[in-house]
Simulated scan of single mutants.
Amino acid sequence: MKSEDEIKKAFQGGDDDGDDTLSVSEAVNAVEKLTGRSLDTSTIESACKSCDVDTSKEMDYDEFVSVVRHLENNNEL
Rank of each mutant, 00 (worst) to 15 (best):
C51Q: 12
L34S: 08
E63T: 04
S46N: 15
D62Y: 08
D20R: 13
D52G: 00
M1W: 03
S42M: 10
E45R: 14
G13K: 09
D15P: 02
C48K: 11
M59R: 08
E6P: 03
D60M: 04
F64H: 04
A10N: 02
G14K: 05
D15V: 04
L39M: 09
Y61H: 14
E26K: 04
K33T: 07
F64W: 06
D15H: 02
L77S: 06
D62W: 01
L34I: 09
D15C: 04
L22Q: 03
V67G: 00
V67F: 02
A30P: 02
S46T: 15
H70D: 15
E76S: 11
A30N: 01
T35A: 06
V24R: 05
N75C: 11
L39K: 11
D16V: 09
G18A: 05
D54H: 01
K2Y: 11
S66E: 12
G13Q: 07
D15M: 03
A47C: 10
T21G: 00
S56L: 03
D17G: 06
E63R: 07
L77W: 15
T43V: 15
K49R: 14
K8F: 12
G13P: 07
E32C: 13
A30R: 03
S38N: 07
R69A: 01
T21K: 13
I7W: 01
N29S: 15
E26I: 03
M1F: 02
S25A: 07
V68C: 06
V67Y: 00
R69F: 02
L34W: 08
S3E: 09
V68W: 05
L22S: 05
M59D: 10
M59N: 09
T41K: 14
Y61K: 15
E72D: 15
T35R: 01
D19H: 03
I7F: 02
A30T: 01
I44K: 08
N74G: 13
G13F: 06
F11S: 01
D62Q: 14
C48H: 11
N75W: 10
S66N: 12
G14H: 08
S46A: 15
I44R: 10
E4S: 10
Y61D: 08
D19Y: 04
A30L: 02
A27I: 00
K9M: 05
K33Q: 13
K8D: 06
K2W: 09
S3A: 03
L39Q: 08
V31L: 15
S3D: 07
I44A: 07
C48E: 08
L77G: 05
L71N: 12
R37H: 07
G13S: 06
E4V: 12
E26T: 02
V28S: 01
T41W: 00
K2H: 14
C48D: 09
D62G: 12
D52C: 01
D54R: 01
V24M: 07
S3N: 04
M1D: 07
V67N: 00
V65R: 11
Q12D: 10
S42V: 09
V31M: 13
E26R: 07
D40R: 13
V53W: 03
L22F: 04
S3H: 03
V28Q: 08
V31T: 09
E6R: 08
